[in-house]
Write a protein that binds this DNA or RNA. Sequence first.
DNA 1: AATAAAACCGAACAAACTGTTCCGTAGCGG
DNA 2: CCGCTACGGAACAGTTTGTTCGGTTTTATT
Lengths: 186, 186
Amino acid sequence: MDRRQQRTRTAIFEAFGELLAQKSYSKITVQEIIDKANVGRTTFYAHFETKDDLLREMCDDMFRHVFSEKLGAEVTHDFSLETGSPRAMVTHVLYHLLDLGGGRLELLTGESGELFLRFFRRRLNEFASRYLLPESIGGRRAPRDFLVNHIASSFVGMVQWWVACGLRQSPEELADYFMEAVTPIL
Amino acid sequence: MDRRQQRTRTAIFEAFGELLAQKSYSKITVQEIIDKANVGRTTFYAHFETKDDLLREMCDDMFRHVFSEKLGAEVTHDFSLETGSPRAMVTHVLYHLLDLGGGRLELLTGESGELFLRFFRRRLNEFASRYLLPESIGGRRAPRDFLVNHIASSFVGMVQWWVACGLRQSPEELADYFMEAVTPIL
DNA sequence: AATAAAACCGAACAAACTGTTCCGTAGCGG
DNA sequence: CCGCTACGGAACAGTTTGTTCGGTTTTATT
């Protein structure tokens, strides 16, 4: 990939992120983005079809990272996706959320949070189904996909609460809360 | 209130609702609304400051109804807010959601669902704190507002799932699922 | 070092949408 | 019946969007 493309792409992402921290998505104009990114109008539309497209790609980047196995440079915690207990999985994802940094996480509770949550939710459903909820749920009235959905909703709610509180709890502590609230159905 | 005002107000609400069922909120223009409502441009802005304002008022209407004690004409179920058990409370609210009718409920899972959920969530937190979660939560690690938040998130998630499934379950049945998933922390 | 390909920029553009103003008309309530 | 108020329509300036054009700079390659 051309070095210039990378430069403008990250410049746009960065500018967009800063703007999202300030004001709601719907009130951000393409003009503001390209001004802050110091990029020509034509260039923007060469990279992204529309503002929605930019948002989508940004979310993809974010959440691909959050649900990946590897963490960023400085942060580490011993973990393997294969062998993890549910509690360890939750802790893992929370560390990845923290690792996002740069105010990205605050976007979830900001004025435009709903937009990101749609993407987050989609990933979480898959995650909950694969890693958290056991295959067989004997002796329950509620269907499995109800429970998957329940877990994913709770997870989203927890993260929102966490961010709103100012990330005061450690991932481990938060995972304990979560397990306490959700273990009975696992 | 002037009869004319009522007419235009409901006409606008109705048109707005139909449009919301078709396309996402952000892509709906004031022009479309007033065309469908058959109302002059000036008139629209006499009633609502902006499109966002219209949305807000509509949500207020919706959720004031959902959390009220009384139900609409035909639907009834014996209930009193004072004496209800948590399960009865949940059933009650679900009946009220059904009672919305006219595709209003589908808005929660549509493209613009996130917008409504913000309003819904606000009400639900209050509701969960007042009616569902006991005052004293002895012997727990998780703080009370974490649990309140957890319950509210689960409730929202449940409703979304419900609507997405096509409202196949009865309120009572759904309340059972919910209690099964959430009772352990009550 | 030369060259072809590309990404970039800036300006200008039509089109759409917003929110407001002005004035004449029609319907309401007392 | 009369005054008041909501309504309608048209026109308005101000934004924002997405596109087009020609010209310039950077990149990767030979």
